[in-house]
């Protein structure tokens, strides 16, 4: 029985692992930290799996648990991983669509994001994932209005960081 649910969990996690990779990408700046966070989220998901009854989608649930893990872990280790350096080798770009100006802008954007706080990062992440405000508010456990207000603030903050 136990190993059956384990097999189900592993299968679903493997299929949806990009969600976790993307969370790691936003919350970490190098490959090692990425791996660590990935592992931590996997363990937290597995611990929470008995409470996942399938009334929400695995992906929605994974977003919630994954972000919560990243946020709490980030809070705990704030001082050690609070770095604005963006590892460009980690950020894969093919040679053809290499555009210097855009690349520079992206670099700045990513480093600007690393300066945001943990909740703001979660907002950006869900925005990049094309989630609407209903889903954002559900995932983060805040009201829809609050999510909109916060999102606007983040946009303003990013603009300010990019154009000081």
């Amino acid at each position: 029985m136990k190993s059956e649910s384990e097999a189900l969990f592993v299968k679903q996690l493997k299929e949806n692992q990009n969600i976790i990779h993307k969370i790691c990408r936003l919350y970490t700046t190098d490959a090692d930290a990425h791996k660590d966070l990935f592992q931590e989220i996997t363990i937290q998901l597995w611990k929470a799996f008995p409470n996942f009854r399938g009334d929400s989608k695995f992906t929605t649930w994974a977003y919630r648990v994954g972000l919560n893990t990243a946020i709490t872990l980030y809070r705990k280790k704030k001082r050690t991983i609070d770095t604005i350096e963006f590892d460009s080798t980690f950020h894969k770009v093919t040679q053809d669509d290499y555009n210097f100006e855009e690349e520079e802008k992206l670099k700045l954007l990513y480093s600007a994001i690393s300066e945001l706080n943990d909740i703001e990062k979660a907002l950006v992440f869900l925005y990049l994932e094309d989630k609407d405000y209903t889903e954002i508010s559900e995932t983060l456990g805040i009201s829809e209005v609050n999510a909109r207000v916060k999102m606007n603030r983040v946009k303003g903050k990013l603009k300010k960081i990019l154009n000081p």
């Binding site: 592993v10 692992q17 363990i43 950020h91 669509d97 954007l109 990513y110 950006v124 925005y127």
Partner: peptide
Amino acid sequence: ELEILKKDWKKNENAFDQVTEKEIYGM
């Protein structure tokens, strides 16, 4: 700004090294 980021985000969506089932079991 966020739209530029989103474009890049989508482009790299599948660029992650995939973890195998065995590795997940290990974790």
